[in-house]
Every structure is written in structure tokens, then in C-alpha cells.
Amino acid sequence: MTKPRQWIERTIEVGLFLSALLSVLVTLGIVGVLLFETVGFFKTVPLLDFLTDTEWTPLFSEKHYGILPLFSGTFLTTSIAMAVALPVGLISAIYLSEYASRRVRTILKPILEILAAIPTVVYGYFALIFVTPLLQKVIPGLSGFNALSPGIVMGIMIVPIVSSLSEDAMHAVPAGLKEGGYALGSTRLQVATQVVLPAAFSGVVSSFILGISRAVGETMIVAIAAGLQPRLTLNPLVPIETVTAYIVQVSMGDTPTGTIEYQTIFAAGMSLFLLTFVLNIVSYLLRKRFREVYD
């Protein structure tokens, strides 16, 4: 190779490497920004108060900084969402991978994927304007803003994540294992639950965890339909507020830099980031494991 050619090759490789490295800088940036403001926050608010105080009222005159009410809101909506997404996603995955004919698959799968492509603000509208009034006909005590309706809608949104990743994992199970089951006279259900599901277990669990991570980080559905009222409760029928919705609520107002209100959203964001970080890494490692076993 000629000298200039070599030089070009080298420059391009370095340029491409820097692009790849940018993603690491993004993570560092996120951690840096969150850490910087969170440290400022904890100069005013003791960590113990943050973790144990049962009220969250930074925007009122009598201020309390207990993250628990926001966490209980996130926990509540996430639980409801997973109660929908888990069974529906898993059953869909088993149905699509073991039962459905080619034709049914090619119709149903893309429609499920559309569910994942719809902007979350649209789901928020749907939860508030359609699902809540519908539920109120069945549950008389249901408030206009509540955890139940956005939770259910969020669950539907997460179904494609759970089902498509679980299905991938089931698909990776070697045909020989399944055929062994059929050769012993098993039904499709027996093969699915006793051969495929155990073999694809780590992949399926990984999809659940990813689903939970999505639900924890979901913002607009709960910001629109759950009520923006921090409340330490597990009652799904009353207005609540999640960690994410709080960040939106503060951002909607005009909060000056450096104030404690401004810092609260970073402290809330830090908690959120740490939580989803653990979930994402566990899910990633599990996924990697099922790939290694059967590839």
C-alpha cells in the first residue's frame, strides 16, 4: 500500500473508533450531570430523610423530600403494567412460536409491533379519555386520575417487548429438543411448557426484566393519566405520581438553575437511572447467556 493510502486508512479507523467511543461519553455525561446536581441536593437534604420521609412536597411551602411516595407510584403502575404484559406477552410468544400457522404469524406479528411504535403521549390520551371512563363504569370508586388505567395501558404497550424477545429466545431452542418431545407423544402444550420454556428460560426472564425497566422509565402515560399527586399508597384507584411524572411536572414550570427544586429532578432522575441500570445489565447478561448456549 502507498503511504497516503495507509494514512487515509488509519485516519478513518480512528474516526470510526471515536464515534463508537461517543456512546461511552454519553453514559459518562449522564452520570456526571446527575451526580453533580444530586450532590448539591444532598447538601441540603440528608440522605436519610430522602429515603425514609413519607412525604414529597418540594413545590409546597412546607417542604418534605421523601422519595418513597414517588417510588410507591412507580412501583404501583409498574406492577399493574407487568400484571398485564407478563401473561399476555408470554402466552402470545408461546402461541406465535409453537402454535400459529405461518399465515397467522405474518399477520399478527407486525400488528403487535405497531403497538410498540405508537408514541407514548398517544397512549396517555387513550388511558385518560377512553380507558378511565370505561373502567369507571365497572369500578364506581375510581378517580378520574388513577394508577390502574395508565398501568393497564402501559402493560399493553409493553406486550410486544416481552412477546418478541421471548419468542426469539424460544426460537433459538434447537429443533432436535422439540422433536424429541414430540417423538415421545407430547402435545404442543407439553413441548412448549416442559421443553421450550425451560430451555429458553434465561431469554424469557431477560424479556420480563427489560419490560419492567421500560415500565419504570415510562413517563407520558403516567404524567397524563395518573394525576401528579405524590401519595404513599398501594391503592390503584386514587391519583398518584411516579418518579418520571414528577420530573415532567417540574420541567413544565419555570424552575431556575441551582434552586433546590431544580436539583430535586436530578436526584429523582439519579434514583431512576440506578434502578433501570441494574435492570438493564441483568437483562443484558441473561440474554447473552441464552445466545451463548444455543448459537
Binding site: A20, L21, S23, V24, V26, T27, G29, I30, G32, V33, L34, F36, E37, L210, S213, R214, V216, G217, E218, T219, T244, I247, V248, S251, I265, F266, G269, L272, F273, T276, F277, L279, N280, I281, S283, Y284
Partner: peptide, 23 residues
């Protein structure tokens, strides 16, 4: 870099908002 990208793909979008706000 790989594990980092996998994690970034799962970071809630609102966290990116805080990143944008800060930086």
C-alpha cells in the same frame, strides 16, 4: 462499549432529557 450501548438503549428517555438540560 458493547455493554454500554446495550444499557444506553434501555435508559429511560426522560434521563436523556436531564442530560440535555445539564449539558
Amino acid at each position: 462499549i458493547e455493554i454500554n450501548i446495550a444499557n444506553l438503549a434501555g435508559v429511560p428517555s426522560i434521563i436523556y432529557g436531564l442530560l440535555g438540560l445539564g449539558i
